[in-house]
């Protein structure tokens, strides 16, 4: 496990950079893959490290997307400012919601997050004056990144912009989860009753994790809104919440490189299969999910580390 944790970041980064030169026609798809990887990483801080399952994490993604879009529509066109605003506002929203999410058991948590998800969806739908309702928001233009790099038609700027954000988030989360705080989160996941006994403030740790996770999810949403020049209701719908859970789990919940691979693989398959027909995508993902519960419990990362263990055993 330790081997993958340390070693996988660099090859992943090299693969991402190489994809820029190998697939120049697919830059906008790659951009989306990076963004969803950030979203999945944010979500997995909760599910994989703290063991808190949520079915409403798209709320923060959507919050970030609308923050960036609304700011841009009102004249704040510097993308990095929009990103920071989205990070702060989504984090703030998460901080406000954390009191009601952290209480209770898994079932009530699922219900509360599900309920909050539908509440926010309805709120965004009703606030037409701000969000454009069901039509979404597209009448805004982004300025150049840092005043230097203009968003171009081929998506080159968007590619590097999102990749830079992914690298930062990856490094930050890697540092965070290997710190004593990350260890405390894993302690909470493994045994929530014993943690207070060794003096760990469980509620405060969970609130911190939830706030960070919400903020980064908002950052991902803002990136998507900025690079696609569009914010819509499906960015905070139930399906997106369910998808991020699937990405994290299929990739290998609790493993940062695994989650990135899971998000990229999932989104690529979704793009390819949905091009055929959305019904085959739903059938495919349904079957894969049901199977994954039985055969690939640790996701991609779990499979790889099992393989590595076996290889080492042969030596």
């Amino acid at each position: 496990m330790r081997l993958i944790r340390i070693g996988a970041g660099l090859p992943l980064l090299l693969a991402a950079v190489a994809s820029f030169f190998l697939f120049p026609e697919y830059l906008s798809l790659l951009n989306t893959l990076f963004i969803l990887a950030i979203f999945a990483l944010a979500y997995d801080l909760l599910q994989g490290h703290a063991g808190v399952v949520s079915l409403g994490h798209a709320v923060f993604f959507g919050m970030g997307a609308y923050t960036a879009a609304v700011l841009a529509a009102h004249g704040v066109t510097e993308p990095v400012v929009g990103l920071l605003a989205a990070l702060l506002l989504s984090g703030l929203l998460a901080l406000l919601l954390t009191r009601i999410v952290v209480v209770g058991n898994d079932l009530t948590r699922l219900l509360v997050t599900l309920g909050i998800g539908f509440l926010m969806l309805e709120a965004a739908n009703q606030a037409r004056w701000l969000t454009g309702g069901a039509d979404g928001m597209s009448d805004f233009t982004m300025g150049p990144v840092l005043g230097l790099f203009r968003f171009d038609f081929a998506g080159e700027t968007a590619f590097w912009y999102s990749l830079a954000a992914l690298v930062l988030v990856y490094a930050f989360l890697w540092r965070l989860t290997t710190s004593p705080f990350g260890l405390a989160l894993r302690g909470i996941r493994e045994n929530v009753r014993r943690m207070p006994a060794i003096g760990a403030p469980v509620r405060r740790h969970l609130a911190t994790a939830y706030t960070i996770s919400g903020g980064i999810a908002g950052l991902a949403g803002a990136l998507l809104a900025q690079t696609s020049n569009f914010a819509s209701l499906d960015m905070l719908g139930f399906e997106r919440s369910a998808e991020v859970m699937m990405m994290a789990t299929l990739g290998g919940t609790g493993s940062i490189p695994g989650v990135v691979l899971g998000a990229v693989g999932f989104s690529y398959l979704k793009d390819a299969l949905s091009a055929m027909s959305p019904k085959y995508w739903h059938l495919g993902i349904g079957l894969v999910l049901m199977l994954s519960v039985f055969v690939l419990r640790g996701g991609i990362a779990g499979g790889v580390s099992a393989l590595l263990r076996r290889l080492r055993g042969w030596e």
């Binding site: 599910q47 399952v53 079915l55 898994d106 079932l107 699922l110 369910a242 859970m245 699937m246 789990t249 919940t253 739903h282 059938l283 993902i285 349904g286 079957l287 894969v288 999910l289 049901m290 994954s292 519960v293 419990r297």
Partner: peptide, 15 residues
């Protein structure tokens, strides 16, 4: 719980 949720979401999607 997480595996149950994933399994049943998969079942619902497939259905």
């Amino acid at each position: 719980e997480l595996q149950q949720v994933l399994f049943s979401i998969g079942l619902a999607f497939a259905a």
